[in-house]
């Protein structure tokens, strides 16, 4: 771990003042940052402890919810406002990491967690994300954990979050404060595709602070589900996951949200598949078709080719669960 100055922020303004400095990073639960700092993958010169800031509340907001950036994953997963209104978020959070990590991990940190690409984490392989311009060791490497959607010739790293996949299906908005004021960023725009700059992972500007996330009231939130497929029964990242939210009238689909995890470079929204489902019945055949649409354009590599089919099946399973 590179030496750093440790700063404790007493207020949001205080945080913004210090967090905006060159080489500064906020620290919340620390489960991504401390890990990557110890691996020398992230080397901030100062870290700003934001855990003392009053950003932990989970509050009702006209039938939706407003979740403070420092609310812990556990706190959110068991909060009555969430358990009664947003089952997919509960399932996603509880399928992630371990109870210990969920007690530490915050909503803000989870949004900004970084890929588990082993070449990114090993500190020495060529990696455009860790060392821009150095190349991408994964392209011809071992890619079981890598993405098949949203990849670029420079990076194929998966965004590993479970929570974010549920947030995408639930139309969340990320609220921030930065040197230039407050912003509300739709979740779909919050994470960015790797493109030519895999080192840039979100729309967040340097020094900008996530203050809270809003989940709107919606007709589909109550019928939302998260399905995660992985190599162990618990405590492992998704090989493929799918959050669905459905608004049904009888067996007809009035509105649908489908988001994918474990297979894409950002929490992935399958808009085409959603659109195709509108007005159609909740049959397995229709679900299969939607799943096929969702994976159109996938660009697999030898080790992760199975994910295309696995993701399709996961989508079907998720839709079946949502519809039942």
């Amino acid at each position: 771990m590179q030496p750093f100055a440790f700063v404790h922020a007493d207020s949001v303004d205080d945080a913004l003042a210090t967090g905006g400095r060159d080489g500064a990073r906020y620290i919340a639960g620390g489960t991504t940052l401390v890990d990557l700092m110890r691996l020398e993958v992230m080397r901030p010169r100062s870290i700003v402890d934001i855990t003392g800031l009053p950003l932990t509340a989970i509050e009702d907001m006209r039938g939706g919810v407003r979740i403070g950036a420092l609310a812990t994953n556990t706190g959110v997963a068991y909060h009555p406002l969430i358990t009664t209104r947003f089952p997919a978020l509960v399932e996603a959070l509880l399928s992630g990491a371990s109870p210990q990590l969920r007690n530490m991990a915050t909503v803000g940190g989870n949004l900004l967690q970084r890929t588990r690409c082993p070449y990114f984490r090993d500190g020495v392989s060529p990696c455009n994300k860790r060392a821009p311009g150095s190349g991408c060791a994964a392209l011809d490497g071992y890619t079981r954990s890598h993405a098949v959607l949203g990849t670029s010739g420079r990076c194929i790293a998966t965004h590993p979050s479970d929570m974010c996949v549920a947030l995408v299906a639930l139309d969340a908005t990320v609220h921030t404060r930065g040197p230039s004021g407050v912003r509300a960023i739709p979740i779909g725009d919050f994470h960015t595709l790797p493109g030519d700059h895999p080192e840039i992972e979100s729309a967040l500007l340097p020094g900008e602070l996530v203050t809270h996330v809003e989940l709107p009231a919606s007709a589909f939130a109550a019928r939302s589900r998260y399905t995660k497929v992985r190599d162990r029964a618990s405590f492992s990242f998704a090989l493929a996951s799918c959050a669905v939210a459905l608004d049904l009238r009888g067996t007809a689909i009035r509105d649908a949200r489908i988001a994918l995890g474990g297979i894409a470079t950002k929490p992935w929204r399958a808009r085409e598949a959603e659109r195709w489902l509108l007005g159609r019945a909740t049959t397995t055949d229709n679900f299969r078709r939607a799943a096929a649409i969702a994976l159109e354009g996938a660009s697999p590599r030898p080790d992760n080719a199975f994910k295309v089919e696995l993701a399709r099946r996961t989508i079907v399973r998720a839709l079946q669960r949502g519809a039942s």
Binding site: R116, P118, Y119, R121, D122, G141, Y142, S145, D231, R232, A233, S234, F235, S236, F237
Partner: peptide, 14 residues
């Protein structure tokens, strides 16, 4: 490549 206990899977309780 699988060089930690997140990537090298050994059984967990579940």
């Amino acid at each position: 490549v699988t060089r930690d206990l997140a990537d090298y899977h050994i059984p967990v309780h579940a």
